[in-house]
Design a binder for these strands. Structure first.
Length: 291
DNA sequence: TTGTGTTTTATTGCCTCC
DNA sequence: GGAGGCAATAAAACACAA
C-alpha cells in the first residue's frame, strides 16, 4: 500500500475486527443483538449513527451523518437542517461502534434474515438497506480473503508437489545412468567372452597357405555342417571337370601317389561305389565302351 | 495543498428461488 | 413477479507523501 489510511493489518485483526475493537468487545458484555431475535440495545439509537433509522422511516428529510450529528450538538439542529437541505446527500462511513457491532453480528452469522436486519438497523440507527449492504460488502471482503487463503494453500501444495516431482526426476536420471553403466559393463563382458571363443578358432584360420586348404576348410566347418547332407568336396563341379578331363585323356599321366596325402587320394579316387557319380565303373556302358 | 492509492459505502444489472 | 444475493463498479472518504 503506497499511500492511504493506515488500516490494521491481518495480524492485528480477529476475522476483520481490529484488535482494539476486539479488546473493546472483550471488555464489554456482548450485546444480545448478536444473537438473532434478541432485544435491542439503547446505546446506539440515534446518538452516533450515520442515518437515523426512525427518521428515515418517518420523514423524507436527508439522512444525517455522524459528523453532522456531532456538529449538531454544538451548533444546533436548525443550522444542520438548513445545511442538509442545501447540500446533496453524501456518502458517509459508519462509526467504529457501529462497525464493531456489525462485525460481531457477522461472526455469529454472515447471512442476514429480515428480522435480524430490522433489529440491527433499529439498534444501530441505520436503514435496513444499509445493514444489508454492509453485510453484502462484508461477505465480498470475506470471500476475497478466503480466496487469498485458498490461493496460498494451493501454492504451498503446488510447491511441495513440485519439489517431490523434481526429486523423483533426479532419482530417475540417476537410475537411468546406473542402467547405462551396467549395460556397458555387460556388453564389455560379452565381447570378452566372444573374443576368447574366437581365439580358439583363430590359429586354424591363420595357418600358412602351404598347408592343405581343404583341411582348414573342413576344420573350420561346424560339426553340424559335416553331419548334414551337404555334398562332399569331391562332388563339386570343379572336381567333375577334372575327372572328365582325365577320362578324355584316358589318364595318360598317373599322379605321383607319393605327393598326395591320403585325403587327396580319396578325392581323386573316390571309393568304387561312389566313382562316376555313384555308378560302379564296371556297370557303366560308357566306361566299358570307351575302354 | 494536492495528487494518489486504498478502503468503504452504495448502485446497477443479472440471476435464482419461492 | 418480487425479494434477496452476488459481481462489477462508481463514488466518496480517508491517509499520506511530496
Amino acid at each position: 500500500m503506497a499511500g492511504g489510511r493506515v488500516y490494521p493489518s491481518n495480524n492485528d485483526t480477529t476475522d476483520g475486527v481490529p484488535n482494539n475493537l476486539s479488546v473493546l468487545l472483550q471488555n464489554q458484555r456482548l450485546h444480545p443483538l448478536f444473537i438473532p431475535g434478541s432485544s435491542p440495545s439503547p446505546s446506539f439509537i440515534g446518538t452516533r449513527s450515520m442515518v437515523s433509522f426512525e427518521d428515515s422511516l418517518k420523514t423524507n428529510r436527508p439522512k444525517r451523518s455522524i459528523f453532522k450529528m456531532f456538529d449538531e450538538q454544538e451548533n444546533g439542529y436548525d443550522e444542520y437542517l438548513e445545511e442538509c437541505f442545501h447540500q446533496p446527500e453524501k456518502k458517509r462511513r459508519l462509526t467504529v461502534d457501529q462497525i464493531q457491532f456489525l462485525e460481531k453480528s457477522f461472526e455469529v452469522d454472515n447471512k442476514l434474515e429480515p428480522e435480524r436486519k430490522i433489529q440491527l438497523a433499529k439498534d444501530l440507527g441505520l436503514q435496513p438497506r444499509q445493514v444489508a449492504i454492509w453485510f453484502q460488502n462484508r461477505r465480498a471482503r470475506w470471500k476475497t480473503k478466503q480466496l487469498e487463503k485458498d490461493y496460498d494453500t494451493l501454492l504451498a501444495m503446488y510447491n511441495s508437489l513440485k519439489a517431490d516431482y523434481d526429486d523423483l526426476l533426479k532419482e530417475k536420471d540417476k537410475l537411468k545412468e546406473e542402467v547405462l553403466q551396467l549395460t556397458d559393463k555387460l556388453q564389455t563382458k560379452e565381447n570378452e567372452r566372444r573374443n576368447s571363443e574366437f581365439s580358439d578358432v583363430k590359429p586354424l584360420l591363420l595357418q600358412e597357405p602351404s598347408q592343405k586348404p581343404i583341411v582348414v576348410s573342413m576344420a573350420a566347418c561346424k560339426q553340424e555342417d559335416i553331419d548334414s547332407d551337404n555334398i562332399p568336396q569331391y562332388y563339386s563341379d570343379e572336381f567333375h571337370s577334372s575327372l572328365l578331363e582325365a577320362a578324355d585323356s584316358s589318364y595318360p599321366f598317373e599322379p605321383d601317389q607319393s605327393d598326395l596325402s591320403q585325403d587327396e587320394e580319396d578325392s581323386l579316387h573316390p571309393p568304387a561305389s561312389l566313382s562316376n557319380f555313384g555308378f560302379p565303373v564296371e556297370d557303366h556302358p560308357f566306361w566299358s565302351w570307351t575302354y
